[in-house]
Amino acid sequence: MIAPRAWHWLAALALLLLAGLAGLVFGATTISIGEIASALGGTGDETTITIVRSLRAPRVALAAMVGAALAMSGAALQGVLRNPLAEPYLLGVSGGAAVGAVLAFGMGMQNTGSLAIPAFAGAIAAVAAALLVARAAGRTARGDPRTLLMAGVIIGAFANAVIMVALANATSDTLRGSLWWMMGSVADASWVGALWLGLYVGIAGVVLLAFAREIDVLALGEEAAAALGSNVELATRRIFLVSALLAGATVAAAGLVGFVGLIVPHIVRALGVRRHRRLVAGSALIGATLVILADVVARTALPPSELPLGAVTALIGVPFFLFQLARSR
């Protein structure tokens, strides 16, 4: 067993910075590190400055926020539900958020910051529906991990159908078509969008870190948590709300990006992190790194076209999910 030490955190941070650099270097055209440095400083070729400052840098920032948010949300949901397969996308939380965002978008709401609110409402509705189904199926809402998951997957499928119907007549010239929402993308990232998401992620992340001990205790099970002084229902609801806010804000900014919330907490646990304060913080770092790199793959794998970000994360995530499912009891 490896004990998490200071150098692990430094290594994770270094990895994140390297991924960010890769996000600036690679794309339709490769830009050298020297050119990036001068472009960031405002000198050099005008086109390069525009690409680096207005296209790639906000894109990297948005991808980092998306990854951090989804991974933190997944870490919290897995702990509270005591379910190693839980994550916002598979639980239908992201799907519900997408419905909320798409409906608001269809009614003319365009700004990422305000779209996050209907997305949050959709996320809450989805998580409530999944929990109600699971509760009806078993004596406790968290009986069999697979019941909740099945409910979530079906709610997600329903959400996809609603989005397709809602966007059936959407103009195809906008990048925010149904594919954008359903497969996720950070391709049209702007600084405004990235900063909005950063605001939500920052606040929700701090709240989640403050709740981390509560998650440690809830992860022991309902009775043990109550025995340790946890107000189980209240604490669970609070953590669900924050996780749904993270997922909802992400969906408003970048559509549906699956499996990040599943994979990342497992990676961090495999590094020897067990308590949730470190798990949530570590997941934010690794999640940001993973999504930046997934986005680099998305824009460079099959030139000249770009892959949807959600397709890349699903290609990594599905085998991982199946592996975890085979291991689960």
């Binding site: 190693p84 205790v217 992860a219 099970g221 009775e223 043990a224 025995a227 002084g229 067990r274």
Partner: peptide
């Protein structure tokens, strides 16, 4: 202090970390 009947260690902890959760209240 209550030691309930059921308790699943879905996400294992180190024993030292686990005992320290007794300080949660």
């Amino acid at each position: 202090a209550v030691v309930p009947q059921r308790e699943e260690a879905v996400f294992p902890l180190e024993v030292g970390e686990y005992v320290a959760l007794g300080r949660h209240p």
